[in-house]
Computed example of a mutant assay.
Amino acid sequence: ADGWARTSPVRAFPANGYGVYDMIGNVWEWTADWYSERHEADAAKACCVPQNPLGGPMEGSYDPRQPAIRIPRKVLKGGSHLCAPSYCRRYRPAARHAEPVDTSTSHVGFRCVTRGANRQ
């Protein structure tokens, strides 16, 4: 319906309210974080809460339901062009799930991030 059979080119759609493009719907995006079921609890004092908490350690990313398979998992975020309400209910920028690091599919990619002024 959007004119693209699968993935779309970068900036094919307007930026969101923060000026960021392509946050959901193209490909699930690898992150640098090792997967953990939950983030660590916030510290008791506001001064001690990390500004940008990362995922857990690599050793904690293994799937506990498959103890014989020791493939670490990274966090994927965002959602892909394959997501639909009947298939993927987590189609939003904050969506996250575990993916083994040896995975390769047509709907998993990555995002390049830069700091600084808005660049064209």
Score class of each variant (00 low, 15 high):
E40M: 10
E40S: 11
A41K: 14
A41V: 09
A41P: 09
D42W: 12
D42G: 10
D42A: 13
A43Y: 04
A43M: 11
A43P: 06
A44Q: 09
A44C: 02
K45A: 08
K45S: 08
K45C: 07
K45G: 01
A46Q: 13
A46M: 13
C48V: 05
C48P: 04
V49Q: 15
V49Y: 08
V49D: 07
P50L: 07
Q51K: 14
N52D: 13
N52L: 11
L54Q: 15
L54K: 15
L54H: 15
L54R: 15
G56P: 03
P57H: 11
M58R: 15
E59W: 01
E59F: 00
G60M: 00
G60T: 06
G60K: 05
Y62T: 05
Y62L: 11
Y62C: 05
D63M: 02
D63T: 02
P64G: 13
P64F: 08
P67V: 09
P67L: 04
P67T: 08
A68M: 10
A68L: 13
I69M: 13
R70G: 10
R70L: 13
P72V: 01
R73H: 10
K74M: 08
K74G: 03
V75T: 08
V75D: 01
V75K: 02
V75F: 00
V75M: 06
V75I: 13
L76F: 01
K77Y: 12
K77D: 02
K77G: 06
G78L: 06
G78Y: 04
G79C: 06
G79D: 04
G79R: 02
S80Q: 05
H81P: 04
H81L: 11
H81R: 11
H81A: 14
L82P: 02
L82Q: 09
A84L: 11
P85C: 03
P85T: 08
S86W: 10
Y87K: 14
C88E: 04
C88G: 06
C88V: 06
R89A: 15
R90T: 09
R90F: 12
R90C: 10
R90D: 15
Y91D: 12
P93L: 07
P93C: 07
P93G: 08
P93F: 05
A94E: 15
A95V: 02
R96A: 10
R96F: 05
R96E: 05
H97I: 02
H97L: 14
A98K: 03
A98T: 01
E99M: 14
E99V: 01
P100V: 00
V101Q: 07
V101F: 03
V101H: 07
D102V: 09
T103K: 02
S104W: 15
T105H: 05
S106G: 11
S106T: 07
S106C: 08
H107N: 14
H107E: 04
V108A: 01
V108G: 01
G109F: 00
F110L: 09
F110Y: 14
R111M: 08
R111I: 04
